[in-house]
Simulated assay, not measured.
Amino acid sequence: MLVVDDGLLIREGIRQVLVAAGCDVVAVAGDVAEMMETLTRESDVDAVVLDIRMPPTHTDEGLKALEDLRASGSHLGVVLLSMYGSPTLAIRATAAGAGTGYLLKDRVTDADMLVRAVRTVMGGGTVVDPEVVAQLVSPAHPRSDLRRLTDREREVLRLMAEGSSNLGIAGRLVLSPKTVESHVAAIMTKLRIESVREEHRRVLAVLRLLRASE
């Protein structure tokens, strides 16, 4: 795993949290150029925890780095960290494809959430910060297909967006895995998401949720 942040204390803090949770942090980097050099040199990096705002402009260098990785064909798991719960940034991150997470930097102190996010993206899943999801899981948006969903289906979609597997959703909502599968199938049908590979369908569903705020 690789930790990328231009702030030394934050970078070290993230590294310590991950190491304490049993993750193998093979390197750290202070900017995108150093990150790319490290990825070229270290063949055993399977995930990156990356700040969105990096030198030189401190705007969206981390997002651009993610997009460049995906454009090059990389399926490396990437968790982006942001100071702000921006649906727009979350949409850009999620649109890059599977294996991507978007978390608020405040979550760094929540070791369980950070590690779950890292493991989810390593497995090709998608994670969006609960605070961002909470803003969006609502039937109130007049143009949103979410109005077709039942309360339970919106709850299942919320947990999908946070990176939970069907089994994890079943445990959280005290439902059988079969029932969760039925809810997921209904969500895909109501949001008109075609049957493609499962991880891509989940990404599309999360994107539909995020774009409901536009």
Rank of each mutant, 00 (worst) to 15 (best):
V180E: 07
L207S: 04
H183R: 04
L103D: 10
Y84K: 06
L157D: 05
S164Y: 10
G163L: 04
R202I: 15
I10H: 03
I187P: 05
L104E: 10
A47L: 07
G171V: 05
V3L: 07
T120D: 01
R107W: 08
D60S: 11
V132K: 01
G99A: 14
R172K: 13
E162S: 10
E194W: 01
G73P: 12
E34F: 06
L136A: 07
E131K: 04
T40P: 02
A29G: 15
L2H: 09
R154A: 02
V32M: 06
A111P: 08
L89G: 12
T94S: 12
A27L: 06
V49G: 10
V174C: 06
L63K: 10
A65R: 11
P56R: 10
V25W: 04
A71R: 12
G97I: 07
Q16V: 14
R148N: 06
R201Y: 01
G171H: 09
S138Y: 02
M1P: 14
P142E: 08
R172A: 15
D31C: 14
V196Q: 09
L175T: 04
E131G: 03
K64C: 07
G73R: 04
D129I: 08
A185S: 15
A96Y: 03
V78N: 04
T120L: 02
L50F: 11
S182L: 08
E153F: 00
G85N: 11
V128K: 01
R148K: 13
V127A: 13
R92W: 03
D106R: 13
A186G: 11
G168D: 09
V45Y: 05
M122I: 14
P55S: 09
I187Q: 00
A98N: 13
H200W: 00
L103Q: 09
G7N: 15
G73S: 04
V128P: 05
R211G: 02
T109F: 04
G168V: 01
R197M: 01
S82N: 07
V174N: 12
L207F: 07
L207M: 09
A29E: 13
T59W: 06
A185L: 08
A71L: 03
V127P: 14
G77R: 00
G99D: 15
M113L: 08
R147P: 00
A161K: 06
V48Y: 00
V137G: 01
V174M: 05
E42S: 13
E181H: 02
A95F: 02
M54I: 09
L175A: 03
R154W: 00
S74N: 06
G123A: 14
G171F: 01
